[in-house]
């Protein structure tokens, strides 16, 4: 564990900046919650920043009765599919990269590394073409496949990083016991990288949940809208209904906030993995 900081005197400069940042982060978040719990008239009377005088769930029902459930189901399907597919593809790949002596593995790793720098935005036109040709346009699968593809490099990087720390003796011991690569994958690689798998899974879930670009260009059916895309519909409908809009935004983020409470460690580990190596 860490002992006391080297600087035990108060740090006024950083302290002041941090306090300012707390206001910058806190006020908009407070406002989002406070607006969404007021009626439109109440909000207009009350002004943007004051504490709400009366709380209401009216906006909640407005949003939920306006297709939110459908969008939620779509998003959950996309998210689950993305997490599963990411793990199924990334775990064996990371294992092969760390343990295989084939030139293919090291080349693949280099290519995946370069993949970290591909801006997804720049590929939307060819993706649109490919997805069309594969007859996948306007389906949830169309959203899942590219989302996973662009998440893989980081997932593999994080998993390979944690596998490198596994000592050769463990692999050797498994081999001595007569285990083939698949059993090693299942009984050694997966258990020892549980932490990284959780981090990669959580991070993949966050990315899929918040994905906007691929649903935007690869679907058009209103029934296939994910939550992020649904928000743009709410924007059109709630032109002047600011509390309604804020409730919609809040509701799309709520599951993620809950995930954050439960799996904060993994989420942060997944994010930190991006810069960690």
């Amino acid at each position: 564990m860490k002992t006391a900081t080297p600087h035990d005197r108060p740090n006024w400069f950083a302290g002041t900046f941090t306090a300012a940042w707390l206001v910058i982060v806190g006020v908009p978040l407070y406002t989002m919650v406070s607006w969404s719990l007021q009626t439109r008239d109440g909000f207009l009377d009350n002004g943007p920043i004051a504490l709400p005088r009366a709380l209401t769930l009216e906006n909640f029902f407005t949003v939920v009765n306006d297709g939110f459930g459908r969008y939620l189901v779509n998003t959950v399907i996309v998210t689950v599919a993305c997490v599963v597919l990411t793990l199924v593809a990334a775990i064996p790949a990371a294992y092969a990269i760390v343990r295989s002596r084939s030139w293919l593995a090291s080349t693949a790793f280099r290519i995946f590394l370069l993949g970290l720098a591909i801006p997804a935005q720049a590929t939307i036109i060819p993706l649109y073409l490919i997805i069309n040709r594969l007859q996948l346009y306007d389906s949830l699968t169309a959203i899942v496949l590219p989302t996973v593809a662009f998440g893989l490099p980081l997932a593999i990087l994080v998993l390979a990083g944690s596998l490198r720390d596994v000592s050769d003796e463990l692999y050797d011991a498994m081999t001595v016991d007569g285990a083939g690569p698949f059993r090693i994958l299942w009984q050694l690689v997966v258990p020892v990288s549980r932490g990284s798998i959780a981090a990669v899974g959580t991070y993949a879930a966050l990315g899929a949940w918040n994905q906007f670009l691929f649903p935007l260009i690869l679907t058009q059916d209103p029934d296939l809208r994910t939550l992020t895309l649904g928000l743009t519909k709410f924007r059109q409908e709630f032109q002047i209904n600011l509390p309604g809009m804020m409730m919609a935004v809040l509701l799309t983020a709520l599951p993620v906030f809950v995930l954050y409470l439960v799996a904060r460690r993994w989420l942060i580990a997944g994010l930190a993995g991006m810069g960690g190596r």
């Binding site: 064996p92 790949a93 294992y95 092969a96 990269i97 050797d172 498994m174 083939g180 690569p181 994958l185």
Partner: peptide, 10 residues
């Protein structure tokens, strides 16, 4: 020999 994964794991 030490079990190493084949390339198709990739």
């Amino acid at each position: 020999a030490v079990s190493r994964p084949r390339s198709w794991y990739l």
